[in-house]
Computed example of a mutant assay.
Amino acid sequence: MAAIILGLIFIAFTVFAVLPGCPLNWGADVIAFLKGFAPVLAAFAGLISILIGAADIKDKKEAKKEEQEAAKNQEK
C-alpha cells in the first residue's frame, strides 16, 4: 500500500513540476531530456532485440539437435 501511495505522490510531483504555470516549470527540460534520451533508448532496445534473436536461433538449433537425437534413440 505504501508503494502505491509513494508512486501517486511521485506522479503528482512530476505533473506539478512539468506544468507551465507552476513555479518549477521543468517542462522544457523534460522535453530536452526525452529528445536526447530517445536515440540512446532506441539503440539499447535494438541491441537487446539482437541478443534475444540470437539466443532464440541458438535455442531452436539445440532443440532440433535434441529432436534428432531422440529420433535416433527411438530407432534403436
Rank of each mutant, 00 (worst) to 15 (best):
A2V: 06
A2C: 00
I4Q: 05
I5H: 07
I5Q: 08
L6W: 11
L6H: 11
G7Y: 00
G7F: 04
G7Q: 04
L8Q: 07
L8I: 06
L8F: 09
L8T: 07
L8M: 09
F10H: 13
I11Y: 12
I11N: 06
I11C: 10
I11H: 06
F13S: 06
T14A: 13
T14S: 12
V15N: 02
V15G: 01
F16H: 01
F16T: 01
F16K: 03
A17F: 12
V18R: 04
G21P: 00
G21L: 08
G21R: 06
G21H: 09
C22Y: 11
L24P: 01
L24A: 15
W26D: 07
W26E: 06
G27S: 03
G27C: 09
G27P: 08
G27H: 06
A28T: 13
A28E: 15
D29H: 09
D29G: 04
D29S: 08
D29W: 04
V30S: 08
V30C: 08
I31S: 09
I31V: 14
A32W: 13
A32S: 15
A32T: 15
A32M: 14
F33W: 14
F33R: 13
L34C: 08
L34I: 06
L34E: 07
L34R: 04
K35V: 15
K35I: 14
K35T: 12
K35C: 06
K35S: 12
K35D: 13
G36Q: 09
G36F: 04
G36H: 05
F37I: 04
A38E: 11
P39D: 05
V40W: 08
V40R: 02
L41Y: 10
A42H: 08
A42S: 14
A43C: 02
A43S: 08
F44A: 14
F44S: 12
A45P: 01
A45H: 04
A45V: 10
A45W: 02
A45S: 12
G46K: 07
G46E: 13
L47G: 15
L47S: 07
I48C: 08
I48M: 14
I48E: 13
S49I: 02
S49E: 00
I50H: 00
L51A: 06
L51G: 08
L51V: 00
L51M: 05
L51H: 02
I52D: 00
I52G: 03
I52T: 02
G53A: 14
G53I: 07
A54I: 10
A54C: 10
A54F: 08
A55S: 13
A55M: 12
D56H: 10
D56T: 12
D56G: 08
I57N: 05
K58I: 05
K58H: 03
K58E: 03
D59P: 01
K60I: 03
K60N: 01
K60F: 03
K60V: 01
K60E: 09
K60D: 05
K61M: 11
K61V: 09
K61A: 12
K61H: 11
E62T: 11
E62K: 15
A63K: 11
K64S: 11
K64T: 07
K65V: 10
E66P: 03
E67K: 13
E67V: 01
E67F: 07
Q68S: 10
E69F: 13
E69P: 03
E69Q: 15
A70F: 13
A71Y: 05
K72C: 00
N73R: 15
N73S: 11
Q74I: 08
Q74Y: 07
K76F: 07
K76S: 04
K76H: 04
